[in-house]
């Protein structure tokens, strides 16, 4: 059902649908409100049906060659929100999270899956592995590596390397029955960032060690007499504590200033509604202030009602000024 279909429906039909979908307050909604709400619910339902591509909790994917793009299915005007589960490629990508952690995602083509499944007698039996290489500074040599054996249902992983300022690359592969590592795909090369001051000093822009520490301490706002390790730690701590960017958050969800303490609560306010009617061409004042009449001569005034007594003279004066009526209600509010 498209929003256009909803628009064509009568209010009764919409209400029936709303009842089916269990929408609260439906009887008090306008037609437009109902359409909006039903449409929103439809979108939500659609979204629930979708598979999250990399979520670990999801059931095992079907790796057959038919799982290519799913975008062809719908050629209607309705918003296509489905994105492919797999792009049918064997690949692995490496990304940097911070000086200590990398993130990698990978995927297999249907062909790879089929071939390996045949060799090993089932996809689940293929000893999949991610080999993480530590590269030399020039990125040429693979100085060391470690292996992460892979669960067949997982297609991404955070890798703890704990090595700032180093180059890394991963190979996606498996172990052959003879114990040999066979590469299926090779990732891009990434460099973890430094987490402290560089050791490299430029002769032309030399600075005495002592002075540099003083400057760094100042920049970091650390206490006097700290070692450079402590200073770096305090810099990284500050980065955690302080709010950095908030462009969107400051518009939609600013960070709360106070820790919200959970406790039961009740707020109560009172308002007073004064309403009535007179001749449409009369003039009306409430507490001496003019009030606008509706074309039919009725009026409504709504005010926050504080503690105490309010004396509220309401005076209507006829157009020619000859007749005048005043009604003066007295309203007291007392909160105990």
């Amino acid at each position: 059902m498209t929003p256009e279909d909803l628009l064509k429906m009568t209010k009764e039909e919409l209400l029936k649908l709303a009842r089916k979908k269990n929408i609260p307050n439906r009887s008090r909604m306008t037609k437009a409100g109902l359409i909006e709400k039903i449409h929103l619910l439809m979108l939500e339902e659609e979204e629930k049906k979708m598979t999250e591509p990399t979520s670990k909790e999801r059931p095992a994917p079907y790796y057959g060659p038919t799982t290519v793009l799913t975008t062809e299915k719908k050629e209607t005007d309705e918003e296509v929100l489905e994105i492919p589960f797999s792009y049918n490629q064997t690949l692995v990508t490496l990304m940097v999270r911070d000086p200590y952690w990398l993130y990698s995602y990978w995927d297999f083509s249907g062909k790879t899956v089929n071939e390996l499944s045949q060799v090993f007698g089932g996809w689940e039996r293929v000893p999949l592995c991610l080999r993480v290489y530590n590269l030399s500074a020039d990125g040429e040599k693979r100085s060391s590596y470690f292996d992460i054996s892979l669960n067949h249902q997982v297609k991404n992983w955070y890798i703890n390397v704990n090595q700032p300022n180093c180059n890394f690359q991963v190979d996606l592969g498996y172990f052959t029955p003879s114990g040999h590592f066979q590469t299926l795909a090779r990732s891009n090369i990434v460099t973890t960032p430094r987490d402290t001051i560089s050791d490299v000093v430029d002769e032309e822009w030399m600075v005495v060690e002592e002075d540099y520490r003083r400057l760094y301490r100042l920049a970091v706002g650390a206490g006097i007499g700290q070692s450079s390790l402590e200073m770096t730690e305090s810099l990284l701590k500050r980065l955690e504590r302080e709010v950095g960017s908030g462009a969107v958050s400051s518009i939609s969800s600013p960070v709360r200033l106070l820790e919200e303490k959970r406790h039961f609560w009740l707020v109560l306010d009172t308002e007073l509604i004064i309403y009535g009617a007179t001749e449409p061409d009369a003039t009306l004042t409430i507490q001496g202030q003019p009030v606008k009449l509706r074309p039919d001569g009725s009026f409504t005034l709504r005010m926050a009602l504080p503690e105490g007594t309010q004396i509220i003279p309401v005076t209507a004066t006829s157009r020619d000024g000859k007749d005048q009526i005043t009604i003066t209600p007295l309203v007291s509010k007392e909160t105990r």
């Binding site: 960032p193 430094r194 987490d195 402290t196 001051i197 560089s198 050791d199 490299v200 000093v201 430029d202 822009w205 030399m206 600075v207 540099y212 760094y216 920049a219 970091v220 810099l235």
Partner: peptide, 8 residues
């Protein structure tokens, strides 16, 4: 601060 070479 963590640039390399060390910024003067």
């Amino acid at each position: 601060l963590h640039a390399s070479p060390r910024p003067k």
